[in-house]
Simulated assay, not measured.
Amino acid sequence: MNKQVITKLEFFLNSLIQRVEENIDFVKGVEFIFKSGTKEYKGIYNFDEGTLFFNGNKQKIKFDQIAEIIKNESQKYESLGFKLFERGKTTIILADNKGVKLKNVDEETIAVSDEHDTAALNLKRDYYIKINEASELLKAIGILTKDGKLKNDMIRKYNQIDHFVELIDAYLDELGELDTINVLDCACGKSYLTFVLNYYIKEKKKKNCYFIGIDTSDIVIQNSTKIAKQLGYRNMEFIKGNIKDYMPEKRIDIVISLHACDIATDLALGAAIQFNSKAIFAVPCCHRELLEQVKFENLNEIFKHGIFKSRFSDLLTDGIRGLLLESAGYKVSIVEYISPLETPKNLLIRAIKVSDRNVKAIEEYKKLKNLFSIQPYLERYLNL
Rank of each mutant, 00 (worst) to 15 (best):
I44K: 12
S373N: 15
F47L: 13
F85T: 11
Q274R: 15
E10L: 14
T7I: 13
F308V: 14
N2I: 09
V196K: 06
E177V: 02
T317A: 14
P284E: 02
D314S: 04
R357E: 13
N300A: 06
E107S: 11
I302A: 04
F82D: 02
L123N: 12
V294S: 04
Y128M: 10
N198L: 08
I263Q: 05
N242Y: 05
Q4S: 14
E363L: 13
V183N: 04
A271T: 14
R251H: 12
K226P: 00
G241M: 09
K345N: 03
S333C: 11
K240H: 07
V100N: 09
L290E: 03
I33T: 13
K62H: 11
L52D: 07
I273D: 02
V112N: 14
I17D: 05
G189R: 12
N358Y: 01
F281H: 02
A140E: 11
T38K: 13
L102C: 01
G43W: 10
I254G: 08
G213A: 09
M1D: 07
N358S: 04
A260C: 01
L269W: 00
R156Y: 06
S333E: 15
R234Q: 12
I17T: 13
A111Y: 13
N208I: 00
V359G: 00
P248E: 05
F195N: 08
T118Y: 10
I256M: 06
I201C: 07
K146F: 03
N122I: 11
T265I: 03
N300Y: 12
L299C: 07
A95C: 07
N72H: 09
N346A: 06
K205P: 09
I219G: 00
Y365P: 05
L341D: 15
V354W: 01
R87S: 15
K366L: 14
Q375Y: 10
I92P: 02
E86R: 04
E326T: 12
G37C: 06
S310D: 15
D96K: 05
I131P: 05
V332K: 00
L371A: 10
E49D: 09
I141K: 09
F211N: 09
S135A: 08
F47P: 04
I334M: 11
